[in-house]
């Protein structure tokens, strides 16, 4: 049952991409898809991490609710009203921003304040940002669907804005992966990948945004980043199995081992990146 309910929206997204449609519509599908993957990552990651935190603050349930709603809205393939969708996107942004503030406050009140040990082990400063990104990508998709009807927002402006969001999001995700992989002392050479490929992708995309012309390298980098996100989840799953007791000790190792749901946020952002490229590419014709 659960498998089918998850598979259905994915099929819908694929159908929408394959179907000939306006550039805005196709781009919107990428943003929606990216937002859905990101929402999924946030949901699973915050569920795990806040379970580790025993949900000691009732607000710790908010990102789960918000990410679930985002997952439904973005994964549902546009079958919700614009108004409903906007509420969900704004909520994601608000909960994400609130989370950023709360995590910052929480780290600051630990013994030693913002010393490295707290940045490595206490509430992750950047993590709630992924929920903000989810809301932004969803909102961009909504704006694009609107523009189909009346061309309210110029394509180029949207393309650059979306590209900037994705590039910024990638940079933030790289920072978080970098911090956590530093915590793991880069003990496996593969741990360098998320701090080497996605930064190039972010730079390439940022350059495209600045020049308003997509470079030929960007799609390849986006594809590599998207793949890396999935490979990262697989790597992390293997990492969990390597911890003491392996999967039999899953109650400890899912929490203590590398976070399986975290890397796919790269995939979500990269998918959205394709949408941004589509808009930048189509700024003169289409």
């Amino acid at each position: 049952m659960r498998g089918r309910s998850l598979a259905l929206p994915l099929v819908r997204i694929l159908l929408r991409i394959a179907r000939p449609a306006s550039r805005e519509a196709r781009a919107a599908t990428f943003f929606t898809g990216g937002a859905a993957v990101l929402a999924g990552s946030v949901l699973a990651d915050s569920a795990t991490e806040h379970y580790r935190g025993s949900f000691r603050n009732p607000a710790m349930v908010l990102p789960l609710l918000s990410a679930s709603a985002s997952l439904i809205i973005n994964g549902g393939g546009g079958s919700f009203s614009r108004k409903t969708a906007d509420v969900v996107h704004v909520a994601a942004g608000a909960v994400g921003l609130g989370g950023l503030g709360f995590h910052a406050w929480n780290v600051g009140r630990q013994t030693g304040g913002y010393r490295l040990g707290n940045l490595l082990y206490k509430a992750p400063l950047g993590a709630p940002g992924a929920l903000v990104l989810t809301g932004l990508l969803g909102a961009i998709a909504g704006a694009l669907r609107e523009s189909r009807a009346g061309a309210v927002v110029p394509r180029l402006v949207t393309g650059r804005a979306a590209g900037a969001v994705v590039a910024f999001g990638l940079a933030g995700t790289v920072a978080e992966a970098g911090l956590l992989h530093f915590r793991g002392a880069f003990h496996n050479p593969a741990m360098w990948l998320p701090v080497s490929i996605p930064p190039l992708t972010a730079l390439s995309l940022a350059r495209d945004v600045a020049r308003a012309i997509p470079s030929p390298a960007t799609p390849y980098l986006l594809a590599m980043t998207a793949t890396l996100g999935l490979a990262g989840a697989a790597f992390h799953a293997w990492g969990v199995s390597r911890n003491m007791g392996g999967w039999r000790n899953w109650r400890q190792n899912l929490l203590a081992g590398p976070p399986i749901p975290a890397p796919p946020s790269f995939t979500g952002l990269a998918i959205a990146g394709f949408g941004a490229l589509l808009l930048l590419k189509g700024r003169t014709h289409g």
Binding site: R183, G184, H187, G239, N243, A256
Partner: peptide
């Protein structure tokens, strides 16, 4: 300071990190 300590905070070879 955090004590410099001879137990792994990351897996090394066949050895598991500290539980």
């Amino acid at each position: 300071a955090e004590t410099p300590i001879a137990t792994l905070s990351a897996p090394i070879g066949k050895a598991h990190p500290c539980v």
